[in-house]
Structure formats: C-alpha cells, structure tokens
Design a binder for these strands. Structure first.
Lengths: 254, 254
DNA sequence: TGAATAGTGTCTATAAGACAATATCCC
DNA sequence: GGGATATTGTCTTATAGACACTATTCA
C-alpha cells in the first residue's frame, strides 16, 4: 500500500498511471466471458446452458462462461470456454456485448464480455452429456423483429427454466444481433451442416427471424448473392424430387 | 495468500468461485473505457483526441478514456470520461466493442470497453481548450462501405497524427458501426443541432458514408420514416429559398 | 429580374411478392 | 402413374434513381 501523503499529492492521471503498474492501488472488477451458443432445432431456436452448482443462483441455468486468464485474448477465452464446457471446437464465434452493471453479480463486481456462437444442430446433439454437464434448452422469443429484451429458456420438454444473473438479457441481445446480421451477412450457413438445400437454409432463416419468408424471393436473393456455391450433388433418400445441395462459397475471389 | 496445500486440492470451478470472492487469488486485467467521439465537420468526419503525457506512447494522440470504477456501470464510466476530458454531457453514447489482446498495452494487461459518441459539430468547437486539453482531429477512412480496418487521424491543418495503442482500430470499428447503423436507425440526427434541414441531414449521411446520395430518394425516405417532425419554421438569412426546418420526432407514439 | 437552392411530379429500372407450369425423384 | 417437393417462368406491385419543372428567398 502507498502512504497517504503520496496519494494526496499526486494528480489523477498520475494515479491512474501508477494503478496500471501496481494492481494493488485500485480495486478492479473481475472479468469473465459468457457464451450464448445458438442452434436451430426443428421449429425453434435452442441454446446450451449449465446448471449452477454453487451459490449465488445455485440450481439455476447459466450460460457457459469463465474467468479471462491473463495470457489469453478475449476471443481465446470464449473459445476455451466452449471447448471446456461443451467439447466444441471451430464453431463460429463473435463478440456480442459487454455487461457491467455494478450489481449484476451479488458476490463482487464482475464484468462479462459476452459472445454468441452458431453451430449446426447435429453437433449439439452429439455432445457427450456424461463428460460435459450441459443442458440443452429451447428459446422463447417474446418480441418481434429486433425489438430486443430478455428471453426465457425452456427445457426440451417445455418446462420453464430459471436463468441465472442477467443471462436472460444476454440471450435476448444475442437473438437481436443475429436477426439483424442475418439479412446482410453470410451467417445462416453456420447453423447448418456443410452441405444443405435452399429449403433448409430458408427454414433456418425463418426460425431465427421468427416469421415466414417468401420462398421465391428467398431463392432469388440467395442464388444472386455469390455466397452460395452449387456442389452439383442432390439430396438422397427423400420421397420427392431431390433438391440441389449447396455449400457456403469459399469467397476465394475476394 | 492461500496456502499451497489448499490450492492443490480444490477443483477448477471451486477455484474460480473463490477467486471471485478474493481478489488476490488470481491476477486480473485492468479495465478501462475509451470513447470515440465523432462529429461531422465540413466535408469530413472528426474526432477528439488527447495527447498522452506519459509513457508508453508519450506524445501520441489517444482516445479519451479512463479506468472503470467499482461503483459505476460501464455506461456511466464512459459518460464520466466525456465529462471529465471534454466537458460534454448528454451526448449520444453507445457501446462499441471490447478490445482485449494481451499485448495491446505494454504496461500490463488492460482490457478496454469502447464506446462511440455522436455530437453536433458546434458543441465540439465550443469546448474550452484551456480547461480541457483536447485535440480536434480529422478522420481519414481508407476503405469503402463497411470493409473495416484501422483509420488514420490528421490534425485540423492536415498534418499526420500518430495514434496510441490500438486506437486506430477502435476508430475504424466506430466508423464501420456508424455506417452500418445509419441506414436503419435514427442516428444521423445526433450529429446535428436540434433543428436542421433535409439538405444538412443528407450532408451528414454522405459524410458518414463517404459517398454521395441521391437527393430525391433521400428526401422520400426521410419524410416517409416518421422519425422526422416538421417544426413549421424555415431557414433565415440564406441567399436562396429557405428550407423547412425539421426536428427529430419525439417518438411519443411508440 | 436573376441567382441559387427548395420542393413537386412523372417516368424508368430494379427488386419483391404472387402464381402458374413443368421437372424429377420414390413409392 | 401418383404423391410430393424442386425449379423455372411470367405477371404484378413496391421502391429507388433520373430528370424536368415550379416555388421562394435575397441581392
């Protein structure tokens, strides 16, 4: 601890400068990352939660998260959390928003940098629940468009699920952001396997946006967008005319 | 400090739990906010910088910023920084992105939550430079649309200005975000005084986007958008037909 | 009256929605 | 062949850009 005399005579910028060198001068918030992992399952959005084993909010469901380590970037921390908590690697991950209300965690000041991740629903189901204590959940969006606001999660059976801390707000922000990006960035692909039909892609868009889309217009837009690449293959084992399979363009020509 | 015996036998989640209670268990990053304050001046975007008086990057220009205090939210910290460094209150402020590369500050690990702020250019000029040591700067955007990337700042005279740390990246992210939001959110108003003409609003949009806009189409879009409210007043002391003055709608009907 | 910019009306090109017709698979 | 969905083509409607014309102020 510095002596009071010195603290009283140095100016504010100096104090901040010293504080940066000496972590004991000022208290500082803890820093975590939390990840909203989103998938499309049947007719609803889904996410992956972890049951809290400790107080506070013991027993409630929380987003997978963890403290940021000194040597890793924020992106790396989010990747690590996904790997440790869900065994997932190489999923699409993007920073969402940083939540820092002083009272958002009753223990102490914890600021959390949140991310959203998009993953093919099947990889979601393939997670080994014995080694990773995750809870798949359905997402219920109580607003239209990009209104925003907190979001409830339900168990896969449809039972209600209490969310810890401000995680309902984080999920709401994730859905709002994804809806906004869907129209002008190639992001829907991330929720599908490598090869997919236009119908499947439209279903993903409709589920994310929470409203039906015009089929003809959707086809035209997607085919005109240069993001899609025809594989030349078609569906197999369907009891109707098989649709062409597309893949996300490598954008090699950029 | 806890004894080594105990540290060795507790599990990882427990350790994190304890770390949250006891700030000395783990080192944690410092947390700051930095604000990219944007205005439109004549034919270019402008921002407000502060000359660094200390190492590292002494003498370089930096965004106004400061450490987050334990009792204030992130938004409040950003507001405080604007008040303390530039004497500005009540400006539009929105969280931008959180930068946390481990080596972004050579002193120690500093994670910064960045904001962008939009302000009428005239309030910018009215800042008392004697009490607030700020440097107005012009912004040079070296890419089109929403490509993104770091951005250079110039002195008002046109001389080059070296930016500290990763602040060129932060400015670039701010411009990219503002360009993206301009088309579908009422944000251009924030860069103008209370009352303004459609021409002035179009000039703001063109300066932000860095490209000319179709006058007729711009008028139609704006007048159809319900965001604008005619004041019934007109321009005065112009040597041509005076344009109608509009104001940002109170959105009372939402 | 003339210079200058504001504001209006009309035409055209482009993108979205609606709908009909045809194609291709499995049974 | 029949059921089902994919794919193509055409028509209609909404929106953006282009352009010509009229309006209003000050010098």
């Amino acid at each position: 601890m510095r002596d009071a005399y010195k603290m009283a005579t140095i100016t504010d910028p100096e104090r901040e400068f010293l504080a940066a060198y000496d972590p004991t001068v000022y208290e500082r918030p803890s820093l975590t990352v939390d990840v909203a992992l989103i998938r499309v399952s049947d007719d609803a959005l889904g996410t992956l939660l972890v049951t809290r084993e400790e107080h506070p909010d013991k027993g409630k469901a929380a987003l997978p998260g963890g403290f940021v380590r000194m040597s890793e970037s924020l992106d790396e921390a989010a990747q690590r959390v996904l790997r440790e908590k869900a065994g997932l690697e190489g999923v699409f991950l993007e920073q969402l928003y940083t939540f820092g209300a002083p009272d958002r965690d009753p223990r102490t000041r914890i600021v959390t940098v949140t991310y959203f991740a998009l993953v093919d629903g099947r990889r979601f189901d393939a997670i080994d629940r014995a080694t990773h204590a995750v809870v798949p959940a359905r997402i219920e969006v109580p607003w239209e468009g990009e209104t925003g606001g907190p979001i409830d999660a339900l168990t896969e059976g449809g039972g209600s699920l209490e969310l810890a801390f401000d995680h309902a707000d984080i999920l709401g922000m994730a859905v709002k952001r994804i809806r906004g990006k869907l129209d002008y960035t190639p992001i829907g692909f991330q929720l599908l396997p490598d090869r997919f039909t236009l119908r499947q892609l439209q279903h993903v868009h409709e589920t994310v946006l929470g409203r039906p889309l015009n089929k003809d217009s959707f086809r035209r837009r997607m085919l005109a967008s240069t993001e899609l690449e025809a594989t030349g293959e078609r569906q197999r084992d369907v009891d109707h005319r098989p649709a062409a399979l597309y893949r996300f363009g490598r954008r090699s020509a950029v």
